[in-house]
Design a protein around this nucleic acid. Structure first.
Length: 927
RNA sequence: AGGCGCGUAGCUCAGUCUGGUUAGAGCGCCUGCUUGACACGCAGGAGGUCGGCGGUUCGAGUCCGCCCGUGCCUACCA
């Protein structure tokens, strides 16, 4: 028809999506406006690594906040969603180092400055990748406010925080035991160490008494092994059964290589076995050093032999114990993971090779009493998986307790709320057991520690800006370390808004409204933002933290490259479009449940997008070209039942979706939209409204007005979930007569659904009567359709339906809506009768109290019908039994809600009647 | 070792907080349909002892206890 609008047959996301993103961006649809009179709503984007690519975790953690932002924009908020990227110190540096290795060089050959420039160049180049992928996903961030953690102003914020904390004594520098990655050659924070349970060994080693030991294994014994002598020694050791027997002590260790650095042996003060030894000395095998025996509460008398070797330089507990007992630190493992000169003949060996050699040596000397299998957790570098080495090293630390306390209190008193609230527990647990935070890294890529050292007077100068010279006039050299990347991301919610300056953005948008992010960075990031935000920005960084789940593969397994089950969001979006992908993520995002991305769900929602597309095609092809304005929804009073029904339902939908979003139930919102759009709007309303849209229909205008009102609302409600397709479809609708209700870009020149008003429930549309009418129509139509399907009646065959036992109200409803029933059930006609027709080939079906009779001469399959009836009778008998049990129980009548009792009674009566009717029908069919 | 979760149809999941219709959805499966929006569709159907045992209750998928299975996080027992 010439005066009809048209849409292409299918939705082509590849061309549509980029078109609208470019439009939104250029028209400023996502720009926040601090001068606006609208209430503010703000979020900051968890900054992805600048050199990263969009992975499934980003996809979820951007889709959900994007849904919230788009919704809030439509509810009339001035929305700021601030994007940016993270320099990701160690991760990015590792990548570039790998590039250099491929080129046959390394960063030391390049030099610090050139290396940093190289990383910067790579970051610049890579930056476009992640940001364009965010656009593909549809993230409605305000690009005009994009930030990078290494930007000048953010770096200034980092220095301000560092200097302030230093002056307050909350940052200190010192020589402590830290987690050291021998491959990355840097210190790591506790969080960057991943513990993995591993099969290891527990070696029981005999440390002889100082006198005894001197003879057996001093330095003199080193260099050669006398097998005979060793055997003799072993026999001797075995003979000393008691742990403290023979003047020596047996200790148990999982890391024999560290024994070379032992400076004591410790026992529990109350351990009677060793009481006599405390204060005495033992002889360290191989090395021959004399070791004092100390008593310390830390020792667990029940573990191993109850005596523990103490290596203050290579074990965190021993480090503490060493300080308590004033023990020397002997460093036997270097920063490169090799044994140092202190390790005597083992010097230069890798720590693991040394372990083996030392065990052999002990064995040879007869000092290895026993080896047990022992499972224990071993720390690995989270970046390169190298086994982490505890080392004593000079580093910078943040004193965390004074910062953690207010951050805990803020969650306790609800200034920041976790959703789901269970996560607060995890947060508390970590925050109350937290250790000081090692923030210095021996890397080049990052914020350089703003500390300078004077070689002349030895003083340390900590300043925001590089000082000229030391107070003593001596030259200064800057600390070569950089800060942990999370130190700068911890400032993100306020550093990105201009802090330390008192900017308009900061005043308006801080604290942010919500933070939506994954559980994997609660400690790395959420906790640090809480601590630093409260300390420096004067308030919590966000009022709500929504913790998203982990995305897994279709079978609930963690995605990993080695398993080959990694879902690439870009590929998925390429195949099914961003809208279907986003809708799937939302639909699967049940709180507290990990998300299993199943192909079936993805496909199902792609088809849903297609459904929405085709509904729109239907709407459009029924719009006369003369209709250039979307008419306001007509008042329900003068409307037919189907219109009143759909208005009622779409109004309820608005309420349901809104409620779901308010509770962060993205899954519920998606489910409601899906069900309404497909199974109510498309399956029923569109089918019902068709005749009213005929050109000759006298109520066509009215039908069009309702159809457009519903369609417009549907697109708006679906927009946060499926931004691209809804914008494309919404743009094809005629603009509203009432411009106030019609989304406009900030410059007012173009329409956009991103800023259209969010549909509110309309009280005047509530219409339970229309619902009950539709329910009856649906039941009758479905009843007839079921008979047709089961008995294989071709659709072309128009049937005559007879209805018995309809009560007057039902008769009136069916009569009034006869045309709908005839059309949807494929009837030639229906009529009400007083008695069952005599025709033996008539099939009966029960709907409520009514009996539907369909004459099916030549088609009816009595046997099949009998089977079906028997099955139905079985079912209803079971139901009847349980209902009778319930009603027969006097306590039920006494205690249950009277409404429930009445309802149950009604159900019981209906079931009984139905049972009786079915029996009759069956008797007629199979006498 | 502690903490948190999960176990409902063949598969992926809602429903459990606030106990009470006939436990729902998508995918898959079966039957029939080129129905003038859509075969990425339409209509109909099969399929569930809600992990197990015990308890509370008139009534339990839902509340309580124990057990089994499974996943994750935290952790300085050498």
């Amino acid at each position: 028809m010439s005066d009809m609008r048209e849409l292409s047959k299918g939705f082509d996301h590849a061309t549509v999506d980029p078109k609208w993103y470019a439009f939104w961006e250029s028209s400023g649809a996502f720009r926040a406006d601090p001068a606006s009179s609208r209430p503010p709503f703000s979020m900051v984007l968890p900054p992805p690594n600048v050199t990263g690519v969009l992975h499934i975790g980003h996809a979820l953690n951007q889709t959900l906040p994007d849904i919230v932002c788009r919704w809030k924009r439509m509810t009339g908020h001035d929305v700021l969603w601030l994007p940016g990227t993270d320099h990701a110190g160690i991760a990015t540096q590792n990548v570039v180092e790998k590039h250099l290795a491929d080129e046959g060089t390394d960063r030391h050959a390049l030099g610090r400055e050139a290396f940093v420039e190289r990383v910067r160049a790579w970051s610049r180049q890579s930056h476009g990748t992640i940001t364009s992928q965010m656009r593909t996903l549809g993230s409605s961030v305000d690009w005009s406010r994009e930030r990078f953690t290494l930007d000048d102003d953010l770096s200034r914020a980092v220095r301000r925080v560092f200097v302030t904390l230093y002056r307050e004594g909350l940052i200190y520098r010192g020589k402590y035991i830290v987690n050291w990655c021998t491959r990355c050659r840097t210190a790591l924070s506790d969080l960057e160490v991943v513990h993995e349970e591993q099969a290891g060994r527990l070696y029981h080693v005999r440390y002889p008494s100082a006198t005894e030991g001197a003879a057996e294994s001093g330095p003199a014994a080193e260099g050669g092994t006398d097998t005979e002598g060793a055997d003799a020694a072993r026999r001797g050791a075995n003979a000393a059964e008691g742990a403290a027997g023979g003047g020596g002590v047996t200790v148990a260790t999982t890391r024999p290589e560290t024994m070379l650095g032992d400076t004591a042996v410790a026992v529990h003060p109350d351990d009677d076995r060793y009481r006599g030894l405390v204060g005495g000395t033992l002889r360290l095998p191989i090395i021959g050093r004399e070791l004092p025996v100390v008593a310390d509460e830390f020792v667990d008398a029940g573990f191993g032999t109850g005596a523990v070797k103490v290596t203050p330089a290579h074990d965190p507990n021993d480090f503490e114990m060493g300080r308590r007992h004033d023990l020397p630190q002997v460093v036997v493992i270097g920063e490169d993971g090799r044994m140092t000169a202190e390790a005597g003949s083992f010097a230069g060996q890798d720590r693991l090779a040394a372990r083996k050699a030392i065990v052999e040596r002990l064995e040879a000397e007869g000092l290895l009493e026993r080896v047990e299998d022992h499972r224990h957790a071993v720390g690995h570098c989270s970046r390169c998986h190298t086994v982490v080495e505890p080392l004593v090293s000079t580093q910078w630390f943040v004193r965390i307790k004074p910062l953690a306390e207010p951050a805990v209190a803020a969650v306790k008193d609800g200034r920041t709320r976790f959703v789901p609230e269970n996560w607060a527990r995890t947060y508390f647990e970590w925050m109350t057991n937290i250790h000081d935070w090692c923030i210095s890294r021996q890397l080049w890529w990052g914020h350089r520690v703003p500390a300078w050292y004077c070689d002349r007077c030895g003083s340390v100068v900590v300043e925001e800006e590089a000082p000229e010279a030391c107070g003593c006039g001596g030259p200064l050299r800057q600390d070569t370390d950089v800060l942990d990347t999370w130190f700068s991301s911890g400032l993100w919610p306020f550093s990105t808004m201009g802090w330390p300056d008192a900017t308009a953005d900061l005043a308006r948008y801080y604290p942010t409204s919500v933070m939506i992010t994954g559980l994997d960075i609660i400690f790395f990031w959420i906790a640090r933002m809480m601590m630093l935000g409260m300390k420096f920005a004067g308030d919590v960084p966000f009022k709500v933290v929504y913790i998203t789940s982990l995305v897994r593969d279709a079978h609930g397994r963690k995605m990993s490259k080695s398993k080959g089950n990694v879902v690439n969001p870009l590929q998925v979006m390429d195949e099914i479009g961003a809208d279907a992908f986003r809708f799937t993520l939302a639909a699967l995002a049940s709180p507290g449940m990990d998300i299993s991305l199943s192909e079936g769900r993805l496909r199902g929602y792609r088809q849903f997008v297609n459904k929405l597309w085709n509904v729109s095609r239907f709407v459009l092809m029924n719009l006369p070209a003369s209709l250039t304005e979307r008419p306001p929804a007509p008042p329900p009073a003068g409307l037919g039942t189907i219109h009143r029904w759909v208005l009622h339902r779409v109004s309820e939908l608005a309420a349901e979706v809104t409620r779901a979003l308010e509770g962060y139930r993205f899954d519920v919102a998606a489910d409601r939209l899906y069900h309404f759009i497909w199974h109510e709007y498309a399956d029923w309303y569109i089918e019902l409204v068709k005749p009213h849209l005929q050109e000759e229909a006298e109520d066509r205008e009215q039908a069009l007005a309702v159809l457009l009102a519903v369609h417009d609302r549907v697109l708006r409600l679906a927009h946060p979930f499926m931004p691209f397709v809804t914008e494309e479809l919404w743009q094809t609708l005629p603009a509203a007569a009432d411009a106030a209700d019609d989304g406009r870009t900030p410059d007012g020149r173009a329409r956009t659904v991103t800023r259209a008003a969010w549909p509110e429930p309309v009280a005047a549309w509530a219409d339970d009567e229309a619902v009950s009418v539709l329910t009856l129509l649906q039941e009758v139509v479905t009843g007839v359709r079921t008979v047709r399907a089961e008995l294989g009646v071709p659709p072309s065959r128009r049937l005559r339906l007879q209805i018995e036992h309809a009560d007057p109200a039902e008769r009136a409803v069916l009569d009034a809506h006869g045309e709908y029933v005839r059309r949807l059930a494929g009837l030639e006609a229906f009529e009400f009768v007083e008695a069952a027709p005599a025709d033996p080939d008539t099939v009966r079906r029960l709907v409520r109290r009514m009996r539907l009779y369909l004459p099916l001469a030549g088609i009816i399959d009595r046997a099949a019908e009998t089977v079906r009836l028997r099955r139905e009778i079985d079912k209803i008998s079971k139901q009847l039994g349980s209902l009778e049990g319930k009603l027969g129980n006097p306590k039920f009548r006494e205690r249950a809600d009277p409404e429930v009792v009445a309802e149950t009674e009604a159900r019981h009566a209906a079931a009984r009647q139905r049972r009786q009717q079915l029996d009759e029908v069956l008797a007629e069919l199979a006498p």
